[in-house]
Amino acid sequence: MTHAELHADAFATLSAWTPPSHGQFSLREAYLGFLAARPDATARSCAPGHLTASAVVMSADRRSVLLTLHPRVGRWLQLGGHCEDGDSSLAAAAFREATEESGIDGLVMDPAPLDLDVHPITCSLGIPTRHFDVRFLVTAPPGAVAVISDESDDLRFWPVDALPPGTDASVTTLVAAAVARG
């Protein structure tokens, strides 16, 4: 799929999504405005910022969440990353990232966004930019065992009520949203 098609999917997905809070509604409107202004918004080459897709991977019983110790950031985060050529949708990009980074077969994806988060970062462009992250819920099959990839310093399931020390507030909020969606 081309970035133009992915851009159209992103606009349609976010337009159809009903945000769970006023803050998420405001972010959705900002994302839609950014998409309207930037036809390259889904390409990592878009220097002012670009859409990314991530997945909060929950255990089948929703008691634990899979987090990666991100090598560049040095914090425990959900799985995810940049949209790539061939991604048919934002949900597909999040699912691809979850599968690649977890090594788990049989993941199940909820195609509706769970949460939005904008954060400043210096990513592969080598200059300060922003990630307009669209975050999705993915469920692991019962008994799933994660396999660490070269994109993680560590990877493990954490109890939802005992996340690693220093967990970023946006991850805590994301996990709470995933648990609430059930």
Rank of each mutant, 00 (worst) to 15 (best):
M1Q: 10
H3L: 12
H3M: 12
E5H: 13
E5L: 15
L6A: 09
A8I: 01
A12R: 15
L14R: 10
P20D: 15
G23N: 15
Q24H: 00
S26H: 09
L27I: 03
R28L: 05
L32V: 05
G33A: 13
A37P: 04
P39G: 07
P39L: 07
D40T: 10
D40M: 02
T42Q: 05
A47C: 08
P48W: 05
G49Q: 11
H50Y: 15
T52D: 03
A55L: 01
V57R: 03
M58N: 06
M58W: 03
M58T: 04
S59C: 10
D61M: 00
V65M: 01
L67D: 02
H70S: 07
R72Y: 07
L77C: 11
G80I: 08
C83M: 12
D85S: 14
S88T: 15
L90D: 03
A91M: 05
A91N: 07
A94D: 05
E97Q: 14
T99M: 12
G103N: 04
D105L: 11
V108I: 12
V108Q: 15
P113K: 10
P113V: 08
P113Q: 10
P113S: 07
L114E: 02
I121Q: 13
I127F: 12
D133K: 14
F136K: 05
L137F: 03
T139E: 04
P142R: 05
P142M: 09
V145Q: 13
V145K: 11
S149I: 01
D154M: 03
L155T: 05
V160S: 04
V160W: 09
P164S: 08
P165Y: 02
G166Y: 07
D168M: 14
S170T: 12
T173C: 10
V175M: 07
A178R: 02
A178Q: 00
R181Y: 02
R181A: 12
